[in-house]
């Protein structure tokens, strides 16, 4: 393990580890927004809950990091289900605003609660070890790769199953989904829980990698960034998410790598957001369904669309 650590530049290993953490975030959001059609602007809340749960359990309560990470996923699953409840009453634009609000509330709790270490955050988060070996660098990379592969596998199975079809039907037309016998309440709560659990896993992996977390890492920008990545790749497509997240995540790293003269490194975040914004505008203009997408971001209002199509369809049928 140590030999490999030497061979691989830890800086690149870190980039890949954090990329994979973002991939997990993206997969979870794609489940919620892409497959089930529930717009969420508060994904960072789930990420933060996962990170803080594992950090608190392992640092404050001295739990083994493996156990704390596992518990964090379960805790995020439960809390996400609760935070998904507004989706039962509001939809689309209103749901976007509501989840945005929940995200902001979550961040302010992270920043102010005693248990989360307030503005200081939590540090000295332990590294998990396997057979007496601490999982650092390449070891940690292997861990996140395994989690990612498991995450992709489970998601593929889920989206091709009865559950996945129920989600897609809800996205397409919620009222008709009910009329087909789908318990939409259950499936909407479930998608927030599972999508949240993905983010929770990402958060836990982030916490034990960074060894220090504070509320800054779980703000609105993260939610928007992940949403941009998922939309760019294409809603409702696993490949799309992998691609969209990778491109948008690695692009700013390229700036860093080539140290372009005309750019100030301290403004990297500003450039990053500008590039994201530009890419979003271009993609939405030329490929509104995203690069791999099956479904557009803004769906038409079904009811009126149906009526219009019905009236137009009249002369076309033969």
């Amino acid at each position: 393990m140590n030999l490999m650590d030497d061979m691989l530049n830890p800086y690149y290993v870190d980039i890949v580890v954090f990329l994979i953490i973002y991939l997990l975030l993206g997969l979870g959001l794609n489940l919620i927004t892409g497959y089930a059609g529930q717009v969420s602007l508060g994904h960072a809340a789930f990420y933060g809950i996962g990170a803080y749960s594992s950090a608190i359990l392992s640092v404050t309560y001295g739990m083994n990091p493996w156990a704390s990470m596992g518990s964090a996923v379960v805790i995020t699953f439960v809390i996400s289900a609760i935070l998904g409840l507004p989706s039962l009453r509001v939809r689309e634009d209103f749901l976007a605003i509501t989840t945005l609000g929940l995200g902001l509330i979550a961040q302010s709790v992270f920043k102010n609660a005693e248990i989360t270490g307030g503005a200081y955050g939590i540090d000295s988060i332990p590294v998990p070890s396997l057979f007496g070996l601490e999982l650092k660098n390449v070891g940690y990379l292997l861990l996140v790769v395994v989690v990612l592969l498991a995450g992709i596998f489970v998601m593929q199975k889920m989206t091709k199953s009865r559950i996945g079809r129920a989600w897609m039907t809800i996205r397409e037309d919620e009222m008709v989904a009910q009329a087909m016998g789908i318990n939409t309440t259950y499936y909407k709560v479930l998608v927030f829980a599972i999508g949240g659990a993905y983010a929770g896993a990402a958060g836990a992996l982030f916490a034990h990698k960074a060894s220090y977390i504070s509320a800054e890492s779980f703000g609105f920008t993260i939610s928007v960034t992940v949403l941009s990545m998922v939309v760019l790749g294409g809603l409702g497509s696993i490949r799309g998410t992998l691609f969209g997240v990778s491109v948008l995540y690695l692009l700013p790293e390229l700036f860093r790598l080539f140290k372009l003269d005309f750019m100030e490194m301290k403004n990297l975040d500003v450039y990053k957001m500008m590039v994201y914004g530009l890419l979003m505008v271009i993609v939405m203009r030329y490929r509104p369904k995203g690069l791999f997408g099956k479904t557009g971001f803004k769906k038409k209002k079904r009811y009126s669309a149906g009526k219009e199509a019905a009236i137009k369809g009249g002369d076309q049928v033969a």
């Binding site: 079809r165 039907t169 397409e172 008709v176 087909m180 016998g181 099956k294 009526k307």
Partner: peptide, 26 residues
């Protein structure tokens, strides 16, 4: 009791076969 709603309201972005499949969901 099963309803064919006003304005048909098929699932537009799912295939014909999947639409039919969803009918048997319950």
């Amino acid at each position: 009791i099963v309803m064919v709603p006003e304005g048909r309201r098929v699932f537009p972005k799912l295939t014909v076969a999947v639409n039919l499949l969803m009918g048997a969901y319950a």
